[in-house]
Amino acid sequence: MIEVRNVFKQYGNVTALDDVSFTVNEGEIVGFLGPNGAGKSTMMNIVTGYLSSTSGEASVCGIDVLENPDEAKKKIGYLPEQPPLYREMKVSEYLNFVYDLKKCTLNRKAHLDEIMAVTKIANVKGRVIGNLSKGYRQRVGIAQALVGNPPVMIFDEPTVGLDPKQIIEIRNLIRNLGKNHTVILSTHILSEVRSVCDRILIINEGRLIADEKTENIARAAASDRKYTVKVAGPRRDVLRELRALNGVRLAEDTGDGDADGAVFAVEAERGIDIRKQMFNMLAAKGWPIMELTPRGMSLEEVFVMITDEDERRRTAPGTRGGREG
């Protein structure tokens, strides 16, 4: 559906994209993840034909974006980082303009009414865009991308500036779109990709450093080996006993705690569930467990881990193999 091959993008001396290749299949929702300035927007702008790449190819539905831009653009609905709204226009006027601009052939009224219903902006259709709140503007921006019902949707940070309720609505909307559209969305909010996307592409400093199914990344994040445990008992004794326990790789006093007890971080050896043992031992000693929380890595930590790993790989001497030349 979307194919990007060996794309480089150079702004003067700055390399914004460095040999990026990926494919997005029909009906997939793919999340573009990366810190600010990593090249997410540049990548999306190239796929939509707004920018050109310095070298490399991008195609949508088998149509090359540079060779046949008009045909390719018909296949794409695009919400840029800043929604392209004309502030002096009314919402309905604006959508009619987009309808004409995209050379739409669907029934005008029915199609636009449907879009306004889906994005929940029908109640503001007579209002001037400049007077709308940020949440509504964002939704008008999304509505604009839906005009013409293009098979591919590209959203650059679609939920920025929305309140929590709207964020959930927009995520549901995108999830629904994903049922019969191909969707790429970019964000730096990890929970967003986790809740919406089938696949995650992580981009850092212009390079694609991970291309994984969301489940895999989530699994890597949800480790069953680390726990935080709060115990009502003497700190030093508890710590000593925890360390002595079979299968415990690491036990540390976090220094936290309150009247209920002290908080410890415990990590098990690979493949061993230490919860039962820990419970039995502490119960036998008469130190009740007040809280036991599995401490999976947050997606933020996974992200930091992946980017750090990548940096280490790149800066380590002698391991740059294949990247020269």
Partner: peptide, 14 residues
């Protein structure tokens, strides 16, 4: 300035 050119340039218009 308002980045509305993104709409025009990503539409099927030359």
């Amino acid at each position: 300035r308002l980045k509305t050119d993104a709409l025009l340039l990503t539409s099927p218009v030359s």
